[in-house]
């Protein structure tokens, strides 16, 4: 993986995904290892993102690397009209690796082809967010002991959620049974569903959340955004159907874990937080270990 950019989840093979998760496990045991002391990590955030940026900066800092960069494009030369190409070419001179978030789809692929250093995509518009997918895989593997043969439910906005799209694609490598729970307006797009069909994996589609809870190992919740509905009345009709309350978890399997990419608004009530099945905050912590693993592997200090 040395010097390899990570733009799209499929840029890394199944074996490479597993290797990253193993390396991340090492960082979970021993988070502070100053193995990147002579390295510079550039975090270029052309649009704001608290969670992902802080998680990357925390990962880099724990490894002893220096972090340079900007947190939104108004504090960079983009505001002067500089092209992405020029920004990337210039920043390539100052660092050993670039972590980039950009509002345009395809920007990360382009940057990885222009840059002289490897690029990690921290989100390119609605397209890909592979490090989120890897931390989701890490969380699933850690809580279930394996990634193989699991029942995974995706709940909420399956149409626009890029984390859902990438995770569905990644899980297709592990004989997953999918349960897709969403309002009709927000069903999983056929471009993503095709990966499930191509592998001939089992899946069900429904609008009923309660029905699926007793069947699954992982419940992956997402937020339904009001602005996704052309008719506000449609939103009012469905908004409460995809809220998870503690009382709904009674018949759940003992190994069930609830994941959420965060930020949460009201789709998981706070009484779920104390339930040992709630895993979303630990999931966010796992993001640091996975990003440490990616930085270390791509910079070639861990193999």
């Amino acid at each position: 993986m040395k010097n390899k950019s990570l733009v799209s989840i499929n840029d890394f093979t199944r074996e490479e995904h597993i290797r990253i998760l193993e390396i991340a496990g090492g960082f979970e045991k021993q988070p502070k290892q100053r193995i990147l002391e002579d390295h510079v990590v550039a975090t270029l955030f052309f649009e704001p993102s608290t969670r992902t940026r802080l998680s990357f900066e925390s990962a880099a800092t724990r490894l002893g690397a220096r972090v340079i960069g900007f947190t939104d494009s108004s504090s960079s030369s983009v505001i002067k009209g500089e092209s992405l190409r020029d920004t990337i070419l210039t920043v390539s001179n100052y660092c050993d690796i670039i972590v980039m978030r950009h509002p345009r789809e395809g920007s990360a692929r382009f940057a990885s082809e222009v840059a002289r250093v490897p690029v990690i995509n921290a989100g390119d518009g609605a397209n890909q967010h592979p490090t989120q997918t890897l931390l989701d895989l890490y969380s699933i593997r850690k809580t279930q002991g394996s990634l193989d043969n699991l029942n995974v439910a995706f709940v909420g906005d399956l149409k626009y959620g890029r984390t859902v799209h990438s995770l569905v694609q990644a899980l297709c490598n592990y004989n997953t049974t999918f349960h897709l729970i969403s309002p009709l307006e927000l069903k999983l797009p056929s471009s993503v569903k095709i990966s499930i069909k191509e592998r001939d994996l089992e899946y069900s589609q429904s609008t009923d959340l309660q029905d699926v809870i007793s069947k699954v190992d992982i419940l992956y919740m997402t937020r339904i955004q009001k602005e996704r509905f052309s008719d506000p009345l449609d939103y009012e009709k469905v908004k409460n159907a995809y809220v998870l309350r503690n009382s709904m978890l009674e018949g759940a399997k003992p190994n069930l874990k609830i994941l959420h990419p965060l930020p949460r608004v009201n789709e998981i009530t706070t009484d779920v937080d104390a339930n040992p099945k709630a895993y979303y905050f630990t999931q966010a912590l796992n993001g640091v270990f996975v990003r440490q693993a990616l930085l270390a592997a791509i910079l070639g200090v861990v193999e």
Partner: peptide, 14 residues
Amino acid sequence: KCFNPNCITNNEEI
């Protein structure tokens, strides 16, 4: 042309 208006190819010289 890429049909996605938010694609980088519709927003930079690429």
